[in-house]
């Protein structure tokens, strides 16, 4: 719920910025005309930093905005504005978004959640990218009897790092600082513990993760990644932690954790077992 609220606030800010710009430049909405054999089609663009794409059969034009600037490994949100190729917004369309990794020939278990925001705008949450590399977002638009698809390419999806997550979000008031949580899609239960007691700023230290599946059985052979991020500042850990499988009890050791700023940190643990990917984010307040 909180997350949804936050997305809406970000969206408002983005849109307010767009509206303000309209007033200044009267006509920030660019309309590019392209010739595609069947006649002229228009791509309408509301935002400077957005991706635009015509659907395969030239029925729709899509504009994609990524609030976090770029997609990264983990859970992402994108906004898509759907226009008719001839111009005009497309409300009440049925939108399906599928993440796909062309080189590996696989997608992900998690289904993105599409919510219509009105005015041809759709927000797409829970876009899970389970690893780094080349990803595609396949978008299918169905409106009345018309259906068409487009593929957005993201050749270099990286782990959340310095160049990612420039969201500069202030911490929500009632942050959950639990050290044991279920992953986003309830596939795993994850607990973290700092080895050596309380986490101290500017000290390299180690964590111990305990991962169980939903039935409470230890998960001993997962591919685990740990990424630290400071949402208020848009940067990550000053180190590259290493994860070692203990091989029993669902235990994993994370070496090389280090926090160099006080305040709100988010540590995301991504887990992949037999193609099932899920992740969980822990909030920390470093003093």
């Amino acid at each position: 719920m909180k997350r949804g609220l936050f997305v809406i606030v970000v969206l408002f800010l983005l849109l307010a910025g767009c509206a303000a710009k309209d007033e200044q430049t009267s006509g920030a909405m660019e309309e590019m005309t392209e010739s595609h054999g069947h006649g002229d089609v228009k791509i309408t663009k509301h935002f400077d930093e957005s991706l635009t794409m015509l659907t395969d059969k030239n029925l729709f034009s899509l504009e994609m905005v990524i609030p976090a600037k770029q997609l990264s490994m983990g859970v992402n949100t994108v906004e898509i504005i759907v226009h008719h190729a001839s111009g005009g917004d497309v409300p009440q369309a049925e939108l399906t978004v599928t993440p796909w990794m062309p080189s590996m020939g696989h997608g992900v278990m998690q289904k993105p959640v599409v919510t219509e925001r009105g005015g041809g705008l759709y927000s797409v949450d829970n876009v899970v990218l389970s690893m780094t590399g080349h990803w595609q977002l396949q978008v299918k638009v169905a409106k009345d009897d018309k259906e068409d698809t487009a593929v957005f390419n993201f050749p270099e999806v990286k782990a959340m790092g310095h160049e990612h997550a420039m969201m500069h979000a202030p911490p929500p008031k009632d942050l959950d600082y639990a050290t044991m949580k279920m992953t986003a899609n309830n596939a795993y239960n994850v607990m973290y513990k700092s080895i050596g007691g309380q986490i101290r700023i500017n000290r390299i230290h180690s964590w111990e993760l305990t991962i169980n599946d939903a039935a409470g059985q230890p998960v001993n052979d997962a591919m685990v990644t740990v990424v630290g991020d400071m949402p208020e500042h848009g940067h990550g850990l000053p180190t590259q932690p290493e994860i070692t499988k203990v091989g029993a009890g669902g235990l994993y050791r994370v070496d090389g954790m280090k926090f160099t700023m006080p305040g709100w940190w988010v540590v995301t643990v991504s887990i992949m077992v037999d193609g099932v990917h899920d992740s969980v984010s822990f909030n920390l307040n470093i003093l």
């Binding site: 849109l15 307010a16 767009c18 509206a19 309209d22 504005i81 917004d89 005015g119 041809g120």
Partner: peptide, 16 residues
């Protein structure tokens, strides 16, 4: 879309 933009900026202004 424009309609939505105006509503959105109105809400933002009210928040401010």
């Amino acid at each position: 879309m424009l309609n939505f933009l105006m509503r959105a900026s109105g809400a933002a202004a009210a928040t401010v």
